[in-house]
Computed example of a mutant assay.
Amino acid sequence: MDERGLDRDGAIAREGALDRVPAAFAPVVDAARARIGETFGGARLHSAYLYGSIPRGTAVPGVSDLDLQLALLDEPTEADRADARAIEAALDRAFPQIDGVGILLAGSRALLSELERHDGGFFVACLCTPLLGPDLAEHLPRYRPTSLLARETNGDLHLVLPRWRARAAEAVTGADRKALSRIVARRLVRTGFTLVMPRWGGWTSDLDESAELFGRYYPERVEQMRIAAAVGRTPSADPAALGGLIDDLGPWLAAEYTAVHGEKTPRPLTAPTSPTHLSPSRGIRGAQMM
């Protein structure tokens, strides 16, 4: 992998690996593998993956969370979601070195579908590390930092902003605002980076690097993006900080993104959710950026 996150042929290299997992998190990963296997087994599970800072080797004990993607043989059911929540809670209780656990669920056929080729498929092939079962990446293309990839990963920010505003209005505690600020900030940094990704010609999941790369092309907005990166690392309970992200940087970024890359292909309500586009309910579920 070169300094732009590309392999020798110019495709985006897979960013994580099991041999990069820090020693402090090895027992967590082992326990996650065991619990997933016991709970979902061969009847429901196609494959399981790690993503985020743990497989990238940048996780910090007591700060980082554990992020997992499960590809099921069929579309997820309410029973599957309940089982995933039980695994999340059990692992979070058992290991003080992690600050939360997030499990994403999707059907394997959906992840391999044409609709998800440049979103959920890209996420699995480039941002996820195989943990259990056959690797779906073997059936997916090699990805390059194109406008198509930018559009299909983050070209729906305009749809997310109203949901954030509603959640901000309902946030009554500092904890609520901190949780939402983490979601919002990381998503905005990620969207700011993919806005300029085709021009820069590479991939990164680092928040600070993403903000600085964005600033090369939009210097008038770089200070806001640096603030977003800081809030993404250390969430804020300040309503003004959250409001600035949602009501100023967010709308500008959504409009610029649509102008440059266009809008993401509409998804049905049952489409799989990956951290590259929609933020799941438990914060950002680690997102791909930490």
Rank of each mutant, 00 (worst) to 15 (best):
V172M: 02
R182A: 15
R182G: 15
E170C: 06
P134H: 06
A166N: 04
E170H: 09
A166L: 13
R163M: 08
G215Y: 09
L159D: 10
P162F: 05
W203C: 11
F123L: 07
T153A: 06
H158T: 10
T129P: 03
S205W: 01
D156C: 14
T146W: 02
K178Q: 15
G192D: 03
V160M: 08
G155K: 04
R216S: 10
V124Y: 01
L161M: 04
W200T: 08
R187S: 11
T204I: 09
F123H: 13
L159M: 04
R177T: 14
L161W: 01
L207V: 14
S205I: 08
W200Y: 14
L140K: 09
L136Q: 10
V184R: 00
R142I: 05
A125L: 06
R182T: 06
T194W: 00
P134S: 07
P145I: 11
W203H: 15
A137I: 05
A179T: 14
D206V: 13
R144S: 11
E138G: 15
G174K: 06
G174M: 03
R182S: 14
A166E: 13
R151Q: 13
R216L: 15
Y217S: 12
G215E: 11
L131T: 11
T153H: 00
D208H: 12
G215V: 15
R151F: 03
P130Q: 06
A169K: 10
D206C: 11
W203S: 13
A175K: 12
R187K: 14
G174N: 09
S181Y: 09
N154I: 04
R216G: 11
R216C: 13
A171C: 12
T153R: 06
R165I: 06
L127S: 11
G201N: 09
Y217R: 12
A185H: 05
L207R: 09
N154C: 12
G133L: 11
F193A: 07
V124L: 12
E212G: 09
A211W: 04
D176A: 15
S205F: 02
V124I: 15
H139D: 12
G215R: 13
F122L: 05
L148E: 14
R182V: 05
T194H: 00
S147Q: 07
K178I: 12
S181M: 12
R187C: 05
A125T: 08
C126M: 05
V196W: 00
L140T: 13
L159C: 04
K178P: 05
P145T: 10
E152L: 03
A150L: 05
R190N: 02
D206I: 09
G121A: 11
G192E: 04
V124Q: 02
